[in-house]
Measured scan of single mutants.
Amino acid sequence: MTTFKLIINGKTLKGEITIEAVDAAEAEKIFKQYANDNGIDGEWTYDDATKTFTVTE
Rank of each mutant, 00 (worst) to 15 (best):
T54A: 09
E28K: 05
G15Y: 11
F53I: 07
E57K: 00
I7K: 06
N38W: 03
T3H: 13
K5F: 04
F53A: 06
I40C: 01
F4L: 06
G15D: 10
I8E: 13
N38E: 04
T3Q: 05
D47K: 11
Y46T: 07
D41E: 15
T54I: 06
E43T: 09
K11T: 15
F31W: 02
I17P: 06
K14Q: 12
F53V: 08
D37H: 06
E16A: 05
D23C: 02
T2Q: 10
A21Y: 14
G10V: 11
T18R: 12
G15S: 06
Q33W: 10
A25L: 12
K32C: 02
F31E: 00
G10E: 03
T45P: 00
L13M: 13
F31R: 00
E43G: 09
E26K: 08
T2P: 05
I19D: 07
K11L: 11
D23G: 02
F53D: 00
M1H: 13
I19V: 05
N9W: 08
K5C: 05
N38R: 13
Q33N: 07
T50I: 05
F4C: 01
A24R: 01
A24W: 15
F31S: 15
T52Q: 15
K5L: 08
Y34I: 03
I30M: 10
A49F: 06
K11H: 10
D47T: 15
V22C: 03
L13G: 02
G10W: 06
N36I: 05
D48H: 06
T18E: 14
E16I: 01
K5S: 12
E43R: 03
T54W: 14
D41V: 01
E57N: 01
I17R: 07
A25T: 09
T50W: 13
I7G: 04
Y34N: 07
D41F: 15
Y34H: 05
T54E: 08
W44E: 02
D47C: 03
D41P: 13
G15H: 05
L13S: 05
V22H: 05
T50P: 04
G42H: 00
I40T: 03
F4W: 11
Y46I: 07
K29T: 05
I7C: 02
D48N: 13
I30F: 12
Y46L: 07
E43L: 05
I40E: 02
I8L: 04
M1C: 02
D47L: 12
K29D: 15
G42C: 00
L13P: 00
D37R: 08
T56R: 08
K51M: 06
L13R: 00
E28T: 09
A21G: 01
A49P: 14
F31C: 03
K29M: 07
Y46M: 11
E28L: 04
N9T: 03
V22D: 05
N38F: 14
N9E: 09
F53L: 13
E57S: 05
A21W: 06
K11E: 05
T3D: 07
T12V: 14
T54N: 04
A27H: 00
M1R: 08
T56I: 04
I8D: 08
E20L: 09
L6R: 00
L13Q: 11
E20S: 13
F53S: 04
G15V: 14
T54M: 14
E57V: 02
T2C: 03
Y46C: 01
T52S: 05
T2S: 07
Y34L: 09
T54D: 14
A25E: 06
T18Y: 13
A35R: 01
D48L: 02
K51R: 15
F4G: 00
T54Y: 03
N36K: 12
G10P: 03
D47P: 03
D48C: 02
L13C: 01
E57P: 01
K11D: 03
K51G: 15
K5P: 01
M1G: 12
G42W: 04
M1A: 12
I7S: 11
N36R: 07
G42K: 00
A49N: 07
A49H: 14
F53K: 00
E26W: 11
D47A: 09
N36H: 07
N38Q: 15
